[in-house]
């Protein structure tokens, strides 16, 4: 039986790199990623209540809201954050379509879109909507984001 009664360390893979990180049992995955010892601040605290999606990361390639899961639940799994996305079609399309303004929600949208295209390479508009409505953007009209994901799905 796995037992954590205080600070301890767990193994997981973050952005392709096997890591051995310290956590406390009450940490969320978001707490862990943003901790100064890990320093991945691309996942943003927007509500810390699972509502806005700004903290979304991929866990074993599935999008999860990192504020809504315990860090310990990521043990042995692979985590992909926005820092692990390098010149992907989705990033290029977001740039091309001006699919952000303030940028605070952007990493969450990018990761949901990235996971979507991994699972469904050519999603229809309904599928794009269903995945991306997990996230909130307060600046754009979403048109730009839709256009970007649409284009990325065609590349």
């Amino acid at each position: 039986m796995k037992t954590l009664t205080g600070p301890t360390h767990i193994q997981l893979t973050i952005n392709g790199e096997p890591r051995d990180v310290f956590i406390e049992p009450h940490y969320t995955l978001l707490d862990l990623l943003r901790h100064p010892l890990v320093g991945l601040t691309g996942a943003k605290p927007g509500c810390e209540n699972g509502d806005c999606g700004a903290c979304t990361v991929l866990l074993n390639q599935k999008p999860v809201k990192s504020c809504m899961m315990f860090a310990v639940d990521a043990e042995g799994k692979t985590v992909l954050t926005v820092e692990g996305l390098v010149d992907t079609p989705v990033q290029r399309a977001f740039l091309k379509h001006f699919a952000f303004q303030c940028g605070y929600c952007t990493s969450g949208f990018l990761l949901v879109a990235h996971a979507l295209l991994h699972e469904i390479p050519h999603p229809d508009r309904h599928q794009i909507t269903e995945w991306l409505r997990s996230n909130i953007c307060r600046c754009t009209s979403y048109e730009e984001i839709l256009a970007a994901v649409h284009e990325a799905s065609e590349s």
Partner: peptide
């Protein structure tokens, strides 16, 4: 229930 991402959790 909830939204697509949340249903993963």
């Amino acid at each position: 229930v909830a939204d697509h991402t949340s249903r993963e959790q």
